[in-house]
Design a protein around this nucleic acid. Structure first.
Lengths: 191, 191, 191, 191
DNA sequence: GATGAATGAGTATTCATTCAT
DNA sequence: CATGAATGAATACTCATTCAT
């Protein structure tokens, strides 16, 4: 029984994620989230002060999970291009395994419900990649451009490619397509 | 007096655009749209059967305007790279002149309010560019990849770059930055 | 063309009758009445100051038509029972030929939309029958009871029988059923 | 405290009944029903999914109450005519004690708001009377006519008589009037 | 007379949130 | 901690009526 600590919280977040991506924030009443999570309506407000807090918490949780996955298998010794490729594959694979999560970002990344503070906190999760790019730039492997431009473009491109593979999952199993799309990504970044 | 034909409809669309990008669909009551457009609440429903129809109509209207601007100054004689560059600049410039319009797409492109039919109709507006890419691919100037992948990536990248310049408008006045960002775009596409 | 005088008024009343019996007063917008009558929305208000006036006018028009039909073929020489029978048949036949009209009364006879004044005016149309009953009472053919009780019961019973035949129109073609139901009616009235 | 179970539901039905008979369905906003019942506007929709459901529930509740009252004091040993008389008086008395309830049926029995299903369910409440009539018909006490005709006429007549006494309540205290009106009813039915 | 675009008050219903149990 | 009945502000949409043409 003790192992159920936080179970309800987690169930609420999961239910919210599924419903939000299918029906949108407004299309998803808190009562329905609670119902799908198998708890009473009041319980949601026990774990999250408001619906907005739930939304923002969900955003941060997903970002955090994303960050953890991103750097799996990365060791310092690897050459830059290999590191970038591995991170790239980590991200795309995570997208394909968690479609609702990337859809969540696509839909709500620009939503007024997500506060500026939350977005800023979410950004913290990408320090590692930004530093990697910066290193590449110093070594004249990566294009010489403002770091935030670089980051914006790289993130946007990954998301776009992820969305594409989400529609054509079978293509990702084909190494040629993986190489082709990574080539696009890399051509963008490299000098 | 006759010049006022459609004035109210236009005013409603404009008001909706501004309010939607600031407060979201749900955060914008129809009454507020009507008020800002300077018409009665009922009038909105005279022109658009539902709020959803207004939203979808707005989407299509903007896409159409976008399409018109996109191909300005393009003549058949120009070499492919020049055509692509010109279209690219047309698009970015239009973004900078119409920030609310690109924000509208960013926020609502994935919204469940925009119907699949509307999105499909919106796609029709990009035939010209798709054919241009196809031509480039046959001439072995542009990467050999599935056309929808190419299109998805190109559109995503343009939007990303547009969003970046929206945050740093002064950089777009500097030719070096324009060249640099177009180079990124072109590196993505070219063989 | 001159023969079309009043055509629109008549068309409006007819459209209103059909729509009211199908959807109720509230379920029938004036715009729909106008549309079905083939006139502009504003035109309705040219002929009837308000929707309520249209309703009340419709009520009176139908009552008047009913009154006209009621006494067809009645001549003073006939014995009382024969007169009553003939009136009875006139009424039932009119019901069967004008189902929407009797439905209109059933549905809206007690509606707050029909003003007291209208109902009183509608009553005037039944003087003839009331006098006939009174005469029968004096001649000790008809039960000795208060005239308004008699009239209420007789009217109620006719309507009930009319509604019954409306559901089973083929039975009215069978003389035995006509006799049977008239017998019920007459048993009510006669001493 | 537990005695308040269902109190709000009952209060809503009672308020609705009063307001509907006075102002009609359309003339009665749900907000007013809630207010008169002493509950919040949202509470109405907690107990009844829609206004229409409230209306139909009210219809069935009244029918059910009517049925319960109808057969009070009826024991099998009584002769048929006495049973019919007692039922008749039960019904008229109930009408006089519950004027809004009979008015409700008069006004809304034919309303499109009351669904066919509801009307059918309401019919179930009259099995007892229908069987009684059927028995009388077999014993050749009651006229030989189709059962639904008999039932329609008997119900219509009771309602008409009830409405009459509602307008002249003092007459019902006079035994002669009770006898007279029952005689009319019975003359209709008996052979 | 006839039109139909425009009006804006009115209404059913939803839903985030509270709180007594 | 958990419940779910109760709340009432908020909102999309309707519709009788007006009036400039």
């Amino acid at each position: 029984m003790k192992q159920e600590q936080g179970d309800k919280r987690q169930a609420l977040l999961q239910a919210a994620l599924e419903l939000f991506t299918e029906y949108g924030f407004h299309g998803t009443p808190t009562a329905k989230i609670a119902q799908q999570a198998g708890v009473a309506t009041g319980t949601l407000f026990h774990y999250f002060k408001t619906k907005e807090e739930l939304i923002n918490q969900l955003y941060l949780d997903i970002k955090e999970e994303f960050r953890e996955r991103q750097t799996e298998g990365i060791v310092p010794e690897l050459p830059l291009r290999v590191k970038v490729r591995r991170i790239w594959e980590n991200m795309i694979r995570w997208f394909l395994q968690n479609p609702t999560k990337i859809l969540f970002f696509r839909q709500f990344g620009a939503s007024p419900y997500i506060t500026a503070l939350t977005k800023e906190q979410g950004m913290q999760h990408f320090k590692f990649v930004m530093e990697l790019f910066e290193e590449g730039r110093r070594e004249e492997i990566i294009k010489d451009m403002p770091p935030d431009m670089l980051f914006a473009i790289a993130s946007g491109l990954i998301e776009t490619i992820g969305m594409y593979f989400l529609k054509h999952p079978e293509q990702f199993d084909d190494e040629r397509f993986r190489d082709m799309t990574f080539a696009i990504y890399w051509d963008c970044l490299k000098r």
